[in-house]
């Protein structure tokens, strides 16, 4: 991987593998040989890793033209598109995994996006910054300002993040939508999986971000 030299998106700590920590976790969740759609694939780091090392059939959607051009120039199958509007084109269960990393909070209709993700993929994997993280809470409480943390780096007036949520909020939405949570991995401030954060409330306080694996509930 050449990714080690890249600056980490959203300021999240990059591990020795040269990967954003949530991408590394996501990559580990994906079975070799699977069909994967990466929604908001950026410059294609995850897709390239999966295609090269996991024998995955990968596709991507990316909003920024620069990201798309970089991906296609690297030989990845990526289209310019918008998670809010373009997911409905894809047939049901067309992919084994649909990935949405650090993008949900920037979508206009997170409910519809999640519903589409679990429709298109047998599994959906979503990572997002946790707004319930204690430093976020402290920053608002003690400074009275919109929080800025390593995973929330934008100022309030130029942030693309219009639908931030906490781990508890997200869990509740999944319940409302009848979406099954198959796995839930909170990540702490050092960018490592926090095994002690098994309880949702603790994860919501100490998890700086989270990775969820979801699927459509078959009985709903």
């Amino acid at each position: 991987m050449t990714g080690a030299a890249r600056s980490p998106a959203h300021g999240i700590e990059v591990q020795q593998t040269g990967f954003r920590v949530d991408l590394r976790l996501i990559a580990d969740m994906i079975a070799p040989g699977a069909r994967v759609l990466d929604v908001g694939c950026g410059d294609g780091q995850l897709l390239q890793h999966l295609t090269r090392n996991r024998d995955v059939t990968g596709r991507g959607i990316e909003l920024s033209q620069a990201g798309v051009n970089a991906c296609v120039g690297r030989g990845l199958s990526v289209v310019q598109g918008d998670a809010d509007t373009d997911l409905r084109d894809y047939p049901t269960q067309a992919f084994d995994y649909v990935v949405l990393s650090q993008t949900l909070q920037a979508t206009r209709r997170p409910r519809q996006v999640i519903t589409e993700l679990v429709r298109i993929g047998r599994h959906a994997i979503i990572s997002f910054p946790n707004f319930g993280y204690w430093r976020v809470r402290m920053s608002l409480l003690t400074q009275g300002r919109m929080p800025r943390t390593p995973s929330l780096t934008h100022k309030w007036h130029d942030t693309p993040n219009i639908h931030l949520c906490t781990i508890l909020d997200f869990t509740e939405l999944c319940r409302d939508l009848g979406v099954r949570i198959d796995r839930h991995v909170p990540i702490n401030s050092r960018g490592r999986v926090a095994p002690l954060l098994a309880s949702n409330r603790l994860a919501n306080l100490f998890g700086e971000q989270a990775v969820f694996q979801l699927s459509r509930r078959t009985d709903s």
Partner: peptide, 12 residues
Amino acid sequence: NAVAADVSFVEI
């Protein structure tokens, strides 16, 4: 996309 084809699309 509707037929899950392998497609790349770039606008220059």
